[in-house]
């Protein structure tokens, strides 16, 4: 199979690799970058578990080829907070029991980052609509909705707008 070079910046680190043109961005992130926090739940763009930020927008990495991300800035779940720390969205998920098995969680957290960046003061209906692009089978969404409300309300020192990359970048 013909392999082509790609260069992608992921979580502020540059990755260069030769990949098959058919390789999805999700597989590139998981296999070539060894960033396995991006999960694959359906591989047809419905469940949202593979959501990452590309140039600040939430994108399903299962529906995009790695070659299409050539030159892009990607942020995955691993890049949302400094290693070992929880960002405000992550902290709110923990406080509100917004996860059980944890498999869908990275996609939710990334999606919520993009959503709150665009709409820092959402209504509950807007939150539920925004979350409808991600599937969870454990929580019944109760803790997830509460977590987003918690961040949006700025509870416990959470910023009013979520960062789109690492905490350092968001502050700059």
């Amino acid at each position: 199979m013909n392999e082509v070079p790609v260069t992608v910046t992921v979580n502020d680190e540059r990755y260069r690799a030769f990949v098959e043109p058919r390789k999805t961005l999700a597989d590139f992130l998981r296999e070539d970058c060894v960033l396995t926090g991006t999960h694959l739940g359906c591989e047809h763009g419905v469940c949202g578990a593979c959501t990452v930020l590309i140039d600040g927008d939430a994108v399903r990495s299962c529906l995009m080829f790695a070659v299409q991300a050539d030159g892009a800035e990607v942020v995955t779940i691993e890049g949302l907070a400094p290693p070992g720390e929880l960002g405000p969205v992550q902290e709110a998920f923990r406080e509100e029991h917004g996860l059980q098995c944890g498999f869908c969680t990275p996609g939710f957290v990334v999606s919520v980052h993009a959503f709150l960046a665009a709409n820092p003061r959402p209504s509950r209906t807007e939150i539920r609509e925004a979350l409808s692009g991600n599937l969870c089978r454990c929580t019944g969404y109760q803790g997830i909705v509460r977590a987003v409300e918690r961040v949006a309300a700025g509870i416990a020192g959470a910023p009013t707008a979520a960062p789109t990359a690492t905490g350092d970048e968001a502050a700059s």
């Binding site: 999960h39 949302l80 998920f93 996860l99």
Partner: peptide, 19 residues
């Protein structure tokens, strides 16, 4: 009590079968 599972899962460091 807040869950002790959460930190790794929330930061992308859970370890599932495909990992």
């Amino acid at each position: 009590v807040k869950r002790r599972e959460d930190r790794r899962m929330l930061t992308g460091h859970g370890h599932y079968i495909d990992d």
